[in-house]
Write a protein that binds this DNA or RNA. Sequence first.
DNA 1: TATCATAGTACAAAATTGCTACTAAGTCAA
DNA 2: TTGACTTAGTAGCAATTTTGTACTATGATA
Lengths: 216, 216
Amino acid sequence: MKNNSSHQKISVAVDVLLFTIEDDKLKIVLVKRKEKPFKGSFALPGVALRESETLKEAAERSVRERTGLKNIFLEQLYTFGELERDPRSRTVSVTYYALTDPGKLDASGADDGVSLISVDEILKGDPELAFDHREIIEYGRNRLGGKVNYSDIAFEFVPKEFTLPQLQRVYEILLGENLYKANFRKMIAPLVEETGNMLTGMAHRPSKLYRRKQNN
Amino acid sequence: MKNNSSHQKISVAVDVLLFTIEDDKLKIVLVKRKEKPFKGSFALPGVALRESETLKEAAERSVRERTGLKNIFLEQLYTFGELERDPRSRTVSVTYYALTDPGKLDASGADDGVSLISVDEILKGDPELAFDHREIIEYGRNRLGGKVNYSDIAFEFVPKEFTLPQLQRVYEILLGENLYKANFRKMIAPLVEETGNMLTGMAHRPSKLYRRKQNN
DNA sequence: TATCATAGTACAAAATTGCTACTAAGTCAA
DNA sequence: TTGACTTAGTAGCAATTTTGTACTATGATA
């Protein structure tokens, strides 16, 4: 850590990958760029880091300015610093990933110009994104897949009260493979408790509603 | 990602946690600061990011300038951006961790002012480090512990030819717990192959030397 | 009221992990 | 030269976890 180069020409940006699951698909919030370069292309919501805010605060601001969401799950992902990432100037981008259930996102009153796009489609190349944002999303997608197994991130994608089939579907989408119902329930049982309510009106047998167990 | 703030007051540093295992202890390379602030304290080796280099290149440069080492294992750890990290100016520090076996480090002809310090001692608070470097090392130490189980980082701490007891010791130090010999060998067997050589002159039964299997 | 589709449970088979106890081999002291 | 010592390496069983199948339960719908 030195400060010998007194005139700094390197910009610091904070970009956010805001994931949610809707219609059984992993999706991400993108914004349509209104300026060059990549005018009209989709890009990750991001901000320039201010001197008076921490990295995480900048990430929270980015989410809030675009979607109105506050207090959602947010963790640092990776920092990208290739030379030609941004044609305007040398920019280092610290990325965060945020998770939310689609209900909160709908209710939050997001900007125009904010879209929810299927991550699978993006990774196939459609639509093409601005900057290196497709690669960033690919990296984030892989991280999510890894994190499912040794953390509780799956809960971030469902409402406070949820059914086990719902939660299992989240696991399956994040892992990209189907799970055995019986095994899934054994695994998840210590983490949840019944609310006493049922999810009815769905045709067929209704399922019990659970909530996340707090302590433990 | 915006560039509306044309005069950038935020510095970008790249700091490296260079770990090795020596005398059955996890150690880290620190340098003694020659300037204020924290003059005389130990700190992580770091550099200011140059406009013409990527983050990883800066990390490599930091390792090379201090220790002479090239081509060692290097991965990004985390980016620290609290407001008061550096009393001189707002500094975002992108950190990398590097791993090496102590043999390479000895042979590389490191600078004066470069020390190998026990990580356990540092985490206990002795010696006290400059900036927030103790917290960074704590974060890196935890990451190492987690990574052992689902990656091959342990191999980075041993020479090209190694014995299974040596490798097991590395696992034990990183995990902080003892492993059963028989299980360890079953787990590691698919990853290694015998070289045909033995490590002799050690008193007691000599052990076979192995190398890492390449493909697979 | 029977059928359908999904919710939820019981339980065996297979694989892995945890653990103990053994045999093997070189050094060193007598 | 030999036997004790200490570490290297292996065999194998017990306990647990994971994998998988097959069943029963329940409300909606026709």
